[in-house]
Design a protein around this nucleic acid. Structure first.
Ligand SMILES: [Zn+2]
Ligand SMILES: [Zn+2]
Ligand SMILES: [Zn+2]
Ligand SMILES: [Zn+2]
Lengths: 130, 130
DNA sequence: TTTCTAATGTTATATTATTACATAATGTTA
DNA sequence: TAACATTATGTAATAATATAACATTAGAAA
């Protein structure tokens, strides 16, 4: 379940673009690409991005200020995300490891506090770049 | 060892400011604060920040575009960082858990790849805000 | 001293993101 | 249906974050 939200026109246009992209897309690159479809202003892009992030259709790669589509179709990881990022070619892969997500969801800080929301970005070299 | 690098004048001024701050500081807040000390331009701040991050004296909180001093005096975690962030008061605490850092350093992705560099940001409510 | 490198100073500009306000579409309830 | 609330859109302006380019200076090192 989840993720069956209906998207509005702008949200769908922007999601489709990100979903087709082999690499994370930046907001203004998205804007440039959707101008021919009538989305003319940054705010229109950011509003769609905010919503798409909120419902878990896309994720923001914080260290890159870029967005990728979620391909963890089965999960509720909208707010518990992990990625590997290649420092040469900038390829980003979403990690879906139940071991990792369990470990992090059960991690307790020194006050005994647990966190269900987190973002983890691993950096290294991808297969091609090694 | 490490972290015994000598800082230049600008680096020291900016580090001292961040180190005294109880919360993460943003680049332009730093700029505003150090203008009376002769640091007048954004680039001077960003250059010092880049260097301080590189040598591990400070860390960037990617989701907030802000910087905090490292207080893990003993460790080499300049490039393997974890934080908890309060979503109400924005308090940020650096997590130093050898269990967590070992787990992440030994984590293998589905290609068997390990990563010694990572950034993890947990989100939740701090003690005060709960 | 000469040379090399890292750091600095300065201006301009690029990139990323939000505020403010008006309008339209959609959903909910009476 | 009408009335109302909520969400999404359109548009312009601007704020906030970050870098490019180039000249100069300070230190290290040979
Ligand atoms: Zn995902
Ligand atoms: Zn690569
Ligand atoms: Zn640290
Ligand atoms: Zn708090």
């Amino acid at each position: 379940m989840q993720k069956q939200n209906f998207l509005t026109k702008n949200q769908q246009i922007i999601f489709d673009l990100i979903d087709k992209s082999p690499e994370p897309m930046k907001a203004y690159a998205i804007l440039f690409n959707v101008q021919k479809k009538g989305i003319k202003a940054p705010l229109q892009v950011y509003r769609a991005l905010d919503k798409l992030v909120e419902i878990g259709k896309i994720h923001k790669i914080e260290s890159r200020n870029a967005f990728i589509a979620c391909h963890n179709s089965s999960c509720q990881v909208a707010k518990a995300t992990a990625f590997s990022i290649c420092e040469i070619c900038e390829k980003v892969t979403e990690i879906s490891s139940s071991g990792l997500s369990k470990y992090l969801a059960n991690f307790k800080d020194k006050d005994g506090m647990k966190y269900s929301k987190y973002n983890l970005e691993f950096f290294g070299l991808c297969k091609k770049c090694r």
